[in-house]
């Protein structure tokens, strides 16, 4: 089943998402990238109803890009997350709501700080030091509570992430086999091999 994890460190945010695209009990694809780069310093991991996820993520991606093109600078993480949250909250009370859960991680170049937001399909948004979605969250959050260091180095952050992923792999019956890990910091976004 779908799992995504994210955590902040001294000056970065790490986001990890599994790579399976499933339909019912069948894995249709095992190398799906479910983390979008919305702007040079903004990442968004999405999970949920399969049709909704891509449709919604692309809608967000294009709108954030449009803002960037129009105004020469992109929305700051806090503003982007607020706008995305509002889109979900409005969708919730529409005729066909999107069922999409998000982890939004960004690096604010204006004040040089990392930001992570946990957003669910209801439009609930929380600014958090670490977060998770899916069944993996039941295993990961306890570990992250114990081992997360808000001032940790990137290596330390990746170690904590490995713990969370390993624990999920060990204990969850329907654990995903593969993850894509992305990092955002002052240099922008990049993919990392765990």
């Amino acid at each position: 089943m779908e799992c995504s994890f994210a955590l902040t460190g001294k000056d970065y945010v790490i986001i990890a998402a599994d790579t399976t695209a499933a339909r019912s009990i069948v894995k249709m694809k095992v190398d799906e990238d479910k983390i979008k780069t919305l702007s040079p310093h903004l990442l968004m991991a999405y999970s949920g109803e399969s049709g909704d996820t891509i449709q919604f993520a692309e809608f967000i991606e294009r709108n954030i890009r449009l803002y960037h093109i129009r105004n020469l600078y992109p929305l700051r993480p806090q503003s982007a997350a607020s706008w995305i949250r509002r889109s979900l909250a409005e969708s919730l009370r529409s005729r066909s709501p999107y069922t999409v859960n998000l982890l939004i991680g960004g690096f604010d170049t204006a004040d040089e700080s990392p930001h992570l937001y946990w957003v669910d399909y209801l439009g609930t948004m929380a600014s958090v030091p670490f977060a998770a979605h899916g069944y993996g969250s039941y295993f990961a959050l306890g570990l992250l509570d114990r081992y997360h260091n808000p001032d940790g180095s990137l290596e330390e952050g990746l170690d904590v992430l490995r713990r969370a992923i390993n624990e999920t792999a060990q204990r969850l019956v329907v654990a995903p086999g593969n993850y894509i890990v992305k990092v955002v910091d002052k240099d922008g976004t990049r993919e990392i091999k765990l």
């Binding site: 105004n71 600078y73 700051r76 806090q78 503003s79 982007a80 607020s82 706008w83 509002r86």
Partner: peptide
């Protein structure tokens, strides 16, 4: 209301 930030001056 939309972006939860004060409007940038140029905008």
């Amino acid at each position: 209301l939309r972006y939860n930030e004060d409007i940038p001056v140029e905008l």
